[in-house]
């Protein structure tokens, strides 16, 4: 009886183990099936590289949305990567233990805040800041609802991802290696730069790529501050319209316009594939790093 139960449990668990792979497959396949309606009539290149977005006329160029996503994400990373890596350097190499321990809940909490809360905060603080302070400084006019506002909010949202992974990478560098550099008379910073950063370079790259894929798919917070104008943005102070925002904003009406549904699903499919690509890339690098450490 006990053995039977064991055998049953084993069989059931084996099924569950297939679930993650199955789900990934299902998601991609599901989105693909749903976007077939438009992929059948429009060439993919036209969908991806045309900036004509006129759903009522049946034109579904996704270029403005793809560029919007890329702009916002790149802006976010340019802001987030240096700050996150420096913060991780401080926490791992310079800070006393109580600071390091105290910083962990802060990073966790930052990661745990719902994106809609970030969005509300962005609307209250970041949008006016960009519109009333940064734009005049740059000599342009902007409502504040802009790529830059989206980038700032998104940067703060990606801090925890990058910091967390970078800290793990730094922790995997043996203390004895730091000692070896220090005992040659190198300063902390020289040791960090030549030894810790070099040893952790791949891991830091992976952390940034992971941050990128996280930022790329973020929806609500960006949607609330980025302005949502379906045109290719020309500057940081222009409004943009990222892919996730497009999907989120138009779901209600999509049933009434033919092939609109399929166009949005294509957008979701493109988004998924890009995110998955970078995600897989980052994981691969991390696995390599982990293997090398052991």
């Amino acid at each position: 009886m006990r053995l039977l139960k064991d055998a049953l449990a084993r069989r059931a668990m084996g099924l569950v183990a297939a679930l993650p792979a199955l789900l990934v497959l299902l998601i991609v396949a599901g989105l693909f099936l749903k976007s077939k309606a438009i992929l059948a009539v429009e060439p993919l290149s036209k969908l991806l590289f045309s900036s004509a977005w006129h759903p009522l006329k049946g034109e579904f160029g996704l270029l403005p949305f793809i560029t919007g996503t890329v702009w916002v994400t790149v802006t976010a990373l340019v802001l987030a990567v240096p700050v996150s890596i420096l913060a991780a350097i401080y926490l791992s190499e310079y800070a006393p233990r109580w600071v390091r321990e105290g910083a962990k809940p802060v990073v966790d909490l930052l990661a745990g805040l719902p994106s809609v809360v970030y969005g509300v905060w962005g609307v209250i603080l970041v949008v006016p800041f960009v519109g009333n302070v940064l734009a005049p400084l740059a000599g342009v006019h902007s409502s504040g609802y802009s790529i830059l506002a989206g980038g700032i909010v998104l940067a703060i949202m990606t801090f925890p991802t990058i910091i967390h992974v970078t800290l793990e990478v730094f922790a995997s560098v043996p203390q004895a290696l730091r000692d070896a550099s220090l005992s040659l008379g190198a300063t902390r910073w020289e040791t960090t730069r030549h030894v810790v950063l070099r040893k952790g370079a791949q891991g830091i790259l992976a952390a940034s790529v992971l941050g990128f894929s996280r930022a790329f798919g973020e929806t609500m917070a960006v949607l609330m501050v980025v302005g949502n104008v379906p045109a290719v943005p020309r500057s940081l102070f222009d409004a943009g319209y990222p892919l996730p925002a497009l999907i989120a904003n138009n779901y209600g009406e999509m049933m009434s316009v033919p092939s609109y549904d399929a166009a949005l699903m294509t957008a979701a499919l493109v988004l998924t594939l890009i995110v998955l690509f970078f995600n897989v890339l980052a994981r691969r690098i991390l696995v390599r790093v982990e293997r090398r450490v052991r």
Binding site: L210, P244, A248, L271, V275, L276
Partner: peptide, 17 residues
């Protein structure tokens, strides 16, 4: 690995799916 991949799927995609 697939769990990590799923972990990275944006929530809007879960919504659409």
């Amino acid at each position: 690995f697939f769990l990590d991949v799923l972990w990275g799927v944006p929530s809007i995609v879960y919504g659409a799916f």
